[in-house]
Design a protein around this nucleic acid. Sequence first.
DNA 1: GTGAAAGCGCTAACAC
DNA 2: GTGTTAGCGCTTTCAC
Lengths: 341, 341
Amino acid sequence: MKKKITLKHIAKELDVSISTVSKAIKDSEEISLETRQKVQAFAKLYNYKPNNIALSLKNRKTKNIAVIIPEIVHHFFTTVISGIEKVANKGGYNVIVCLSDESFDKEVINMEMLANGSIDGFIISLTKETQQRRDFYHLQEVINQGMPLVMFDRVADEIVCDKVVIDDVDGAYKAVKYLLDTGCKRIALISTVDYVSVGKLRTEGYMLALKESGVDIDDSLILKIEDIEKCDEVIQQLFEEKDFDAVFAVNEIFAVTAMKIAQRKGLKVPHDMSFVGFTDGLLSRYATPSLTTVVQHGLEIGERAAKMLIKKLDEEVEEETYSTEIVQTTLITRESTKNKR
Amino acid sequence: MKKKITLKHIAKELDVSISTVSKAIKDSEEISLETRQKVQAFAKLYNYKPNNIALSLKNRKTKNIAVIIPEIVHHFFTTVISGIEKVANKGGYNVIVCLSDESFDKEVINMEMLANGSIDGFIISLTKETQQRRDFYHLQEVINQGMPLVMFDRVADEIVCDKVVIDDVDGAYKAVKYLLDTGCKRIALISTVDYVSVGKLRTEGYMLALKESGVDIDDSLILKIEDIEKCDEVIQQLFEEKDFDAVFAVNEIFAVTAMKIAQRKGLKVPHDMSFVGFTDGLLSRYATPSLTTVVQHGLEIGERAAKMLIKKLDEEVEEETYSTEIVQTTLITRESTKNKR
DNA sequence: GTGAAAGCGCTAACAC
DNA sequence: GTGTTAGCGCTTTCAC
């Protein structure tokens, strides 16, 4: 078992000083050709690689970026991570992934731990709990320390920093508009509770589309679900009590669950009822019938977030300017909706 | 913008030496109560936190573990990561996630980069390419340097190290046995190419179950798919050319794709044809009809892998003993198969 | 052309 | 009780 070799070992072995070795390996003109070759040959032979930690300490940068997300078993977040990874690796950065598990405390602990030198910057999507409490002290703290932070998707307006979001209002608007255009009259909305920023925004988009088309908003057709585990029964109840001919859901699971309930009740999709979801994951693609949905382009969100962060990291820009990038959504029409006339 | 504070700052401010500060913060008996209190108060006031990088350099351990997986947009891998995260965080470790993107080169580069001090150990599932080439030099290299490595799911028998796998043969066996027990006679297998270890093992399980029940193996009912993107047409072709009454697929996507094709052809599931998949992701749960599948318990795999790694890391065991843990699979029966008689 | 020395932030053995 | 020193692995300035 040969342990990692250091400059010191090489220096001793070759009977030169550490600094000579360091320079020789960098092929510095300062060192005689002979010494350089000798050192380089030796280094190659023993597969010398500089120690990242020592470099980090010396340079005061780690070349690591942290991504903090509430959940990883989730199509949207994994595509975002893919995008971040891609850009980060190209820029020579590693990605440290931390799961906050939708817990405010874990989010805080993870950030504090990582902020102490382990990483150069953060990319984060907030937990529901954080959004509900509106307690952003830990985020402000990190920013105050001069560490760049980029927020995506579930962001906090109160915090001034770079952000990447999708136009949730517009995405929902497009979805509902499409339903109206295909002749649907009474459109139910299955959303999350309001403190989840994206749920709220998508609800706004829904209302906007209805208002614009002169359709009265019937609050009893709006379902706000807190616990995704129990969505089945809550949606079931909506079907029992209300009458509607289309459903717009703010995520795949709500959409597919609703669609299955409709089918169980003998309704034909999209003939009797149309469905539109949000997020283009496997579920939407492979559902029967396949689901019309609003595509979030997670990969692009990840790429943009990573680019913004790395720009701040590499450029040493002194003037603090922050921007919010908006990634446009796309509506993919599939079998769960009728054709536009 | 207040930069991070160091021991040095505190020492200067309080006019004591750095080591006094260090000891005082650790509440060492060596230091007078008065000084301790003074230092601790100051440290708290300025929110002093030791620099992780300096600690890493000093202690020669980073408290980071790297997870290298081929793909993250994949239910199985994300559940494994969740399991790893859970155990790692509890043990005070951070998780660095790297995607090899099914590329041998990326796998090698990632490992080399991280092995130079950034992390204390690896958890890895190999890329298809690595399994095909059987080139494990980079893995052996890491092990030779004395860095612990745990492989999971897609492992290499040639490498001696800790491993966590599922019993793929048995999982497939159970699936096919179940199909036979419910009266299926001609069972098609939709698998991956053989060099993917899990595909090969599941194929073995399929054959075992058939042989054991005295059913002749019809090679023409075995489909080995290389490119998941094109699975639709290949499976379609199987349906055109062959006759069978059940399908066992080695993943969710193949299973659901086959089921959709069957339905398009007017077959009733499970009345005319039964389906069993592998991996219990959203797809299996929300497919119509829902899919009977072999559950891999990714969370447990992740937890076990992390436990094995951390044990090696924390315990400084000198005697090198390696083990392979096998996580049992479970067959979940849903609507895509008939009831057992 | 080569090497000594300082320093990144921290710890710990050893002096005083 | 407190401070000095050395060292983790590396870079870089400045002597020689």
